Amino acid sequence: MPSRFLTSACLSAALLLTATGCSDGSSTGSPAPSSTPTPSATASSTPPPATTAAPSTPPATTPARTPAQLTKGLLALADLPAGFSIEKADDSGDDDVTLSSKDAKCAKLVAFSNADVPPGSKASATQSYSGGAEGPFIDESLDAMGSAAAVGALQKSFKQAIVSCRTMTLTIPGEGRSPISVREVSAPKSGTDPVAVRFSATSGPLEGLEVTMITTGVGDVVLALTIVNGLPEDIEGATSAAVRKAQSVLGSGT
């Protein structure tokens, strides 16, 4: 069972998210001319020199995030308890893992789950970690969304998708397909607008599989953790460590 199948999936399909940008402009008016002529007004044949308005200074912008910068914000082994290792990326068919549902109320979450990257993402970085043969297995992703407002909109859209859906079907090539329950759970209080969801296979060949996903904001970046075989303390500890690391490297953004 690959441990990466929900990291890019559930978060990054914010197909329905359209980040709204706001522009701010200002205009200045010239003062009204005096209506009282000066004594030399009629005697002077030289018009006063024209004044040139100072060019406006464009507002400062936050430098665009890069994948290399985001990668530095991911957890390192030094940030995790002893016994963890970094998992190498596996390109052996995880893209064929799908979530589906015939329930129209789940259409939004299905879209979230099967997309590769958020449509508003400007840059991405991911990493996988293993706590041993029995886990926990942790995937982390960081997606730069361009602004904190876009992050908040994504979090709101993702939460609405979770609340609307109760069951879906998970299909893993070579492993089978099983129904899974969808349940919003309490998210660790780290980052901004944290959201957490638990996916549990209720029957079939994948019965017993349980995956918890947490997404939260770090300024203009969405941080997502997908944890398999994790105890509550694993979920809390990993989320706190990931947010601290991202904040220390990436700052608050805009």
Rank of each mutant, 00 (worst) to 15 (best):
R4C: 07
S12F: 09
S12L: 11
T20Y: 08
S23Q: 09
D24H: 13
T28S: 14
S30N: 14
P31Q: 12
P33A: 06
S40E: 09
A41V: 10
T42R: 05
A43R: 09
S44T: 15
S45T: 15
S45W: 02
P47R: 00
P48Y: 02
P49Q: 03
T51G: 11
A54G: 08
S56H: 09
S56Y: 09
T57D: 00
P59H: 03
T61N: 05
T62H: 12
T66S: 14
T71N: 13
L74T: 07
L77M: 07
D79T: 08
P81M: 02
A82M: 07
F84E: 00
F84W: 12
I86Q: 15
I86W: 04
A89K: 06
D91N: 10
D91Y: 10
D96G: 06
D96R: 13
V97P: 01
V97T: 12
L99G: 03
L99A: 10
S100I: 06
S101T: 02
S101C: 05
D103P: 07
A104Q: 14
K105S: 15
C106H: 03
L109D: 00
V110P: 02
S113Q: 03
D116W: 09
D116A: 14
V117G: 04
P118D: 14
P118Q: 11
G120I: 15
K122I: 15
A125E: 00
T126I: 05
T126P: 03
Q127E: 06
S128K: 00
Y129R: 01
S130E: 04
E134R: 08
E134G: 06
G135L: 08
P136R: 04
P136F: 04
E140V: 13
D143V: 11
A144R: 06
M145A: 15
A148H: 01
A150F: 08
A150K: 04
G152T: 10
A153R: 11
L154G: 13
S157T: 12
Q160S: 14
I162K: 03
I162N: 04
V163C: 06
S164P: 00
S164Y: 05
S164W: 01
T171K: 10
T171D: 11
I172Q: 11
G174P: 07
E175L: 12
G176V: 15
R177Q: 15
P179D: 04
I180V: 15
R183F: 07
A187H: 00
A187W: 02
P194D: 08
A196D: 02
V197A: 03
V197E: 01
R198W: 02
R198F: 01
F199T: 05
P205K: 11
E207K: 13
E210G: 15
E210L: 13
T212E: 00
I214E: 02
T216H: 10
V218P: 14
V221R: 10
L223F: 08
L225C: 06
T226K: 03
G230T: 06
I235V: 15
I235K: 09
I235N: 03
I235Y: 09
I235D: 03
G237D: 02
A241W: 05
A242T: 06
Q247I: 07
S252D: 15
T254Y: 08
